[in-house]
Design a protein around this nucleic acid. Structure first.
Lengths: 360, 360
DNA sequence: GCACATATTGGAAGCGCTTCCAACAATGAG
DNA sequence: CTCATTGTTGGAAGCGCTTCCAATATGTGC
């Protein structure tokens, strides 16, 4: 109450309260609103001197553009959907989706795009049809597809037909003609793990793959094999199993692997959760890690630091991937033409922790 | 190119393309824009019949309000800051912050509030001053404070003085007069864990607390003691240590605890990460879990499912907390008056997994 | 039946910004 | 020195919505 009174008194006295608008800046700088807008948007055709004046006024007032107004006026109100393959309220491998979405929403907020999240059960028969239905229903301008949906050429073609631009997170090489595939260099990442392990002196390997259809995960395996080949090791040096990215499958498959190929010295897992399962299986089998068995994960989720020993893994910039996806989609919509197909490669990083070490 | 041509042809033929606006709905329903707005916002004074007509038109066109325009027109453009205590790019206990922020950004997008994230190092001397500076600089209308900042009365008072509404996530009872404290019933949650463990037949307990100043974590300890008292057990039944929420501290303190009080049968940890560390310490000490030692976590982050055995823990609806915080702050700003101090309690849930079991 | 209160509708202004278009200044070529 | 070109500015319309206010319809008590 008292505050209100003070505010009103302030207003009366001519002092502005509330957030400054572009007109306040224009008034203070002594130019037209249009000119301020040009400066704010880094457009050409403003004299340096004038630009400076505007900038000073902006600084002085602590002015920030109102994103909502900007987007409304610029008629670039966008709606982008983010399609998750599984519900991270119930799924253990939730960090992947969660980080991706956080990056996307953050970017979206800054760009004024409205992000709509859909969770589609990847095991459903009609998953693709469901996605199409949801997206048309939402009237989305673009969609971010997470694996394995981004690897489905049929779906991508349908969406393109509907005029919905797409970005396929961790999309494989086979969809690069159909959509923008965003991800790390999976081949290189697999190769990096191979080189790391070979450099440590290992010669016999186990590999816990991910689900079929997740092309990027397959590509990592190819990269790994390439590293082996370059070191003069044949494919016979690696025994593999196919998991489903869960802790449980990592546990089970590692037990099976250890039983069938007791001589493997290093075990590569397609994500951190499975590596955590592998860790447990190894502990149970009485193996010391990394002395008896080196283990690697993939993704560098928080998991990799709360297991013992902490996992050597590949860091993927998940939040940045989400953000980039939104940026590209927004830009493509602004330019009027869809998102150009191709590939956007982000940097990955081998993070060496204590789950790997040189052979004794 | 070809698509453009088609679109232009469509437009020429009188068919509307692009997203329908409120005027399209009004035209189709044969009412004024104002009336549609009223229906959309559930305002009174619209005849049932008319309301129905509008709803049909909305449905038919697949109309969705443009949040940006709505907020601009409703002059409720809001800026809310989210203050994290630590950077979850580098911190292991990142899921807590990450889930909170995701809930907040999602809600923010729907409500048209702009969420600004700040990361403040809680160990810095000038952390509070930094927060104040950042918030004034941003011209925020509200702020969401995560522990331990939400427990700092001095800071809360300063922010209120600046007219910045606050919500303290997991704020303790001592700040309920100064801000809206949002969280679960920590006392009850601690009590629940106590009852669970006592019900399983345990009589000697270890407790790994969190950092001092995190009031909610302290309250859980009090609740736990209350459960003990109700069961006729004295405070002497529990040996405790103070950790810092990291895996490492859980590991170290559990080792110390096991050395000093070898007879403890159940170990309660203030978060999942420390429980994961405790798990490892117990494994190392040759304890079987849960037979020799029951262990509980807190938060129900994904961690609790990728350790072995999976952790019995308390589920906190983190994403919902973030969302609620934004909603309340937005509502308070809309109403003109700040956020009323008090407490907003969300439901927690004891999730029983395999890290606890009845005494043999 | 009337005067009045109340419920229901529509018209129009305007949120803070971008962008189109017109006006004018400065520059260079002829 | 003129005309055309380019660079620099401002005016005004309008993005899709809410909300104030006025206008009309409906209902109430006498």
């Amino acid at each position: 109450m008292r505050d209100d009174g003070q505010l009103i008194a302030l207003e009366r006295s001519g002092v502005r309260v509330g957030k400054p608008t572009i007109d306040d800046v224009a008034a203070l700088a002594g130019v037209a609103r249009t000119t301020v807008s040009r400066v704010l948007n880094n457009q050409p055709n403003v004299r340096g001197e004038v630009r400076e004046k505007v900038l000073v006024a902006v600084e002085k007032l602590g002015y920030r553009v109102n994103v909502q107004a900007r987007n409304l006026a610029g008629r670039r109100t966008m709606r982008i959907a983010l399609i998750h393959a599984s519900d991270f309220d119930t799924e253990p491998n939730s960090y992947f989706s969660s980080a991706l979405e956080l990056g996307a929403t953050r970017a979206g907020a800054g760009l004024g795009v409205q992000l709509i999240t859909h969770v589609i059960n990847q095991n459903d028969q009609g998953a693709a049809a469901q996605i199409v239905a949801d997206l048309s229903d939402d009237q989305c301008d673009g969609a971010i597809l997470t694996p394995p949906f981004g690897d489905d050429p049929q779906l991508l073609r349908t969406l393109r037909g509907l005029g919905i631009a797409t970005v396929a997170i961790a999309g494989g090489a086979d969809v690069e003609k159909l959509t923008l595939a965003m991800g790390i260099d999976d081949f290189q990442a697999g190769y990096d793990i191979g080189v790391h392990l070979i450099g440590l002196g290992h010669k016999r390997f186990g590999f816990v793959k991910g689900l079929q259809g997740h092309t990027s995960a397959e590509t990592r395996f190819d990269g790994f094999l390439a590293a082996l080949a370059d070191a003069g090791l044949s494919e016979a040096a690696v025994t593999w199993r196919r998991g489903n990215f869960t802790f449980r499958s990592g546990l089970d498959l590692t037990q099976s692997l250890l039983a069938d190929a007791p001589d493997i010295a290093a075990l590569v897992c397609a994500n951190d959760d499975m590596a955590a399962g592998a860790l447990l299986a190894a502990h149970k089998a009485g193996k010391r890690i990394p002395e008896d068995l080196a283990i690697t994960g993939f993704d560098d989720t928080p998991v990799s630091e709360i297991v013992w020993p902490p996992l050597t893994t590949i860091h993927q910039p998940l939040r940045r991937m989400g953000a980039r996806a939104v940026e590209l989609l927004a830009a493509s919509a602004a330019s009027g033409k869809g998102c150009a197909p191709g590939r956007e490669v982000l940097e990955h990083q081998l993070v060496v922790r204590e789950s790997t070490a040189a052979t004794p």
